[in-house]
């Protein structure tokens, strides 16, 4: 026989419920602590870098070229070199990647070829950069006879970023609701009209974010450019915006960081750190602008 619960004891905690609630509180704190533990090293890195780099930091460091065998001066040559490499590589991979993704997502029918391309894209995105470096060396430097040059290095970086751009663009495209495409097809719009009028305007923020995030990747990679077109030192004049041509070799920030940290004796201690700050700062700046762009475009998004 079950006894009738008196009204005052209804809905009160039983032992089991109390135990579950305790477990839930513990879980919350543990997970919270983990996410803090993730942020702390990042903050520590930034603070440590800034502290070490402080004596060298300043506009002068950015605008001046390396002097006295890179033991003094700035990093202008490397900074511009990285701009060249990143700009050119994305100018190649972004249009190809976006167009390929549009084809794969909007036009291609389900077939073994499509599945094969998909698998290739996913797997290529996971290939280590040193392998891309070797491929670039064989394919562009020697194979296509572009030599050690900005062109070879940019092409290598482009090959490296392409699969990721395809994947992120496809993701952005497939986030556009099916219903919009139906609505268009239903008034007799062709696929291309549908893409232009509805699909692209509603996925552009995702597409751009995906591309911009590859900027940081292209800027940070060392091996691919070291194998194909970046050099230790190249004489350019201070503040020159166009010091390199396509067939030239160039300096690059990631490579320069490697050089001044390990290859040159008696470098002023703050120089490698300041180089790292510039590299990290540029990357963070680009990522932040991606976020701002995304928020802005989302605000204008139409659904």
């Amino acid at each position: 026989m079950e006894s009738v619960t008196p009204p005052s004891e209804r809905f009160t905690r039983t032992h089991q419920v109390a135990r579950r609630e305790r477990a839930q509180t513990v879980a919350k704190w543990v997970f919270g602590a983990m996410s803090l533990a993730m942020v702390l090293p990042l903050v520590a890195i930034i603070v440590y870098l800034l502290y070490k780099a402080w004596p060298s930091l300043g506009w002068e460091f950015l605008a001046d070229i390396p002097r006295k065998g890179m033991r003094e001066g700035g990093i202008w040559s490397a900074f511009v070199g990285t701009l060249y490499l990143v700009g050119l590589s994305l100018a190649i991979s972004a249009p190809i990647g976006v167009l390929a993704a549009i084809y794969l997502n909007e036009y291609a029918r389900e077939s073994w070829l499509n599945r094969l391309i998909n698998m290739a894209v996913i797997n290529l995105a996971g290939v280590p950069s040193i392998v891309h470096a070797l491929f670039g060396l064989g394919a562009f430097v020697y194979g296509a006879r572009f030599g050690f040059s900005i062109l070879s290095a940019s092409l290598t970086l482009a090959i490296m970023t392409l699969p990721v751009i395809i994947a992120s663009t496809r993701e952005a495209l497939s986030a556009v609701p099916r219903a919009f495409r139906d609505a268009c097809a239903n008034v007799g719009a062709t696929r291309w009209q549908t893409i232009r009028a509805v699909v692209l305007p509603n996925s552009i923020s995702g597409i751009l974010t995906g591309i911009i995030l590859q900027v940081s990747r292209a800027a940070g990679e060392t091996a691919p450019v070291m194998f194909t077109g970046a050099v230790f030192f190249k004489a350019v004049s201070r503040g020159d915006l166009f010091p390199y041509r396509l067939g030239d070799q160039c300096m690059a920030l990631s490579m320069h960081l490697y050089t001044v940290s390990t290859q040159v004796p008696n470098v002023k201690e703050s120089i490698p750190y300041a180089t790292a700050v510039v590299l990290l700062g540029s990357v963070l700046l680009v990522n932040a602008s991606a976020i701002v762009l995304r928020i802005w475009l989302r605000g204008r998004k139409k659904w």
């Binding site: 219903a179 139906d182 239903n186 008034v187």
Partner: peptide
């Protein structure tokens, strides 16, 4: 023409929805 189970207006203005077909 077809009308779907769930209304599927395009994510643009009322005006642009109506003239969408003409524009296309």
């Amino acid at each position: 023409g077809m009308v779907f189970q769930r209304p599927n207006p395009l994510p643009v203005s009322v005006y642009e929805n109506v003239v969408f077909g003409l524009r296309i």
